[in-house]
Nucleic acid binder design. Structure first.
Lengths: 266, 266
DNA sequence: CGGACGGTTGATCGTTATCAAGAAGAGTGG
DNA sequence: CCACTCTTCTTGATAACGATCAACCGTCCG
């Protein structure tokens, strides 16, 4: 039935794979549109090329790095997807974040010199390795590089409130709608369809990310298919009626009451 | 009764206040022990001093910065405390983080050039203003400064998973225990007592941070006083039995304990 | 004094975790 | 290609936890 539902996601990478070992240049890399949205800039391409130490394949379900691994390299996702696992205060591993092409991995480790989270591939993936040592050296020589890297870290900071914000939502319907819309937007930005895409994570990954259980995710999906303008079949997602999906987030709307519980002032 | 429960927290700052306008040097600043745990390093003090553009007082319940404010300055908390408010996907403001002395504020804004969150003082507070322009200039001149700043941003990254981790915890008991232990540890690192301290945030701030309501926070406190080795009276917290508090988090840590599951009964 | 605010407590109801079982895929080896 | 197994996913029944609504208390402030 819906067994070969790959859409077009893996096509571009698969073409590039053959040449990938010989090809270090970002300018020539087939992934350049999706990749390095902040760090990369065409006029710096020659500088940046020197920093790419190599590429690394990570097969589905194996880890790019984990807690306590020594830190040498930053990684930029070339193609594929990853999940970030971190321990909650009771010691359970939870999914904190999903990475896609162009995302920079490893900046957490700069502070302590070793990685703080496990990063696991959701599908067969490839990353570019960037030597942190070389990057720092490059920053001394080309000061505009400093600014660029600071911006990259800064937007990672902003981004980290995302799941925290999502978990603030009282109802799971809101969380799930928010999750889907966010994914859709990310696929859109990558140049894929934001209307139809394939989930690369399991139901239990979704559950972990949303702060709930597999069973509830299953029920959410059933209910969203029936009521909220999407069609989720296996891992294939189709956004039938985006407005209806967005409405889940706006339903809470009490017309114009101050949404905060902080004192009025001014 | 417990009306003047200030413990010793504000003493050191209050001594410094008088001289604060004249005194820009980190080396002379009374807050130096608590402040700048990463960015500051004694041998760089002379460089760093040049970056401090001034100090700024923020009175209780007013904002240091908010969404869309233009970004010029980073701030380092000199004394006092702040909460960070961010909008969840439905538009409600939620408490994402509490800042204490030494924390660096504003790094989110580097990417976009404007602030992304509201930062509000929980008590009368003071920050050092650091010109981002000057900081970048300093980084060009003194390369080891780059490394230091990257480390500061990196540990901010690690830190941002904290609330996300906390909200992953299923039960509110776990979240609240985690919250208290974390606060206790932070006060300890600041040189104050980790056994007794004063909450500077309201119950509803706590509720927002923990992802619950004021009422539930109230009930949590009552129950924790009775059962979990703490005494919380108004805003005064005393950790009576730390192990008991920690035990709340360890309840389900190990693989298989012997609960009641047996189909046989007597 | 009255009103606003922060905090506590009570009663009720709904959402969601949990336990349990079964269905559907995916991988493996014959 | 099929039979087997293991994992992932779905569905059902039940109970508990926490949100919600509502009332009340104490404090601060004009």
């Amino acid at each position: 039935m819906h067994s070969n539902v790959h859409i077009s996601r893996t096509e571009a990478p698969s073409i590039v794979q053959l040449a990938s070992n010989a090809m270090r240049s970002c300018a020539l890399c087939g992934a350049d549109k999706a990749c390095l949205p902040e760090l990369f800039h065409t006029k710096d391409a020659h500088v940046f090329d020197k920093l790419i130490m190599g590429k690394r394949r990570i097969s589905r379900n194996s880890s790019l790095c984990q807690e306590h691994d020594k830190f040498n390299m930053l990684y930029v996702v070339r193609f594929g997807q990853f999940k970030v696992l971190n321990r909650d205060p009771t010691g359970m591993l939870r999914v904190m974040k999903f990475y896609m092409a162009g995302d920079v991995i490893g900046m957490d480790a700069i502070a302590s010199g070793s990685h703080t989270v496990r990063v696991m591939a959701l599908e067969n993936s490839e990353v570019c390795e960037i030597s942190y040592l070389h990057l720092r050296r490059a920053m001394c020589e080309e000061p505009q590089f400093v600014e660029r890297f600071l911006r990259t870290m800064s937007s990672a900071l902003v981004d980290r409130y995302e799941r925290s914000s999502l978990l603030s939502l009282a109802s799971l319907d809101e969380r799930f709608a928010s999750f889907l819309l966010d994914l859709s937007e990310k696929y859109g930005r990558q140049g894929y369809s934001s209307r139809a895409f394939r989930l690369s994570m399991s139901r239990s990954d979704i559950g972990s990310y949303l702060g709930t259980t597999v069973e509830t995710v299953s029920r959410l999906i059933a209910r969203f298919n029936a009521q909220h303008g999407v069609s989720i079949n296996g891992r294939l997602v189709e956004v039938i009626d985006r407005k209806r999906l967005q409405a889940v987030l706006e339903s809470d709307a009490m017309p114009r009451s101050p949404p905060v519980q902080s004192p009025l002032f001014e």
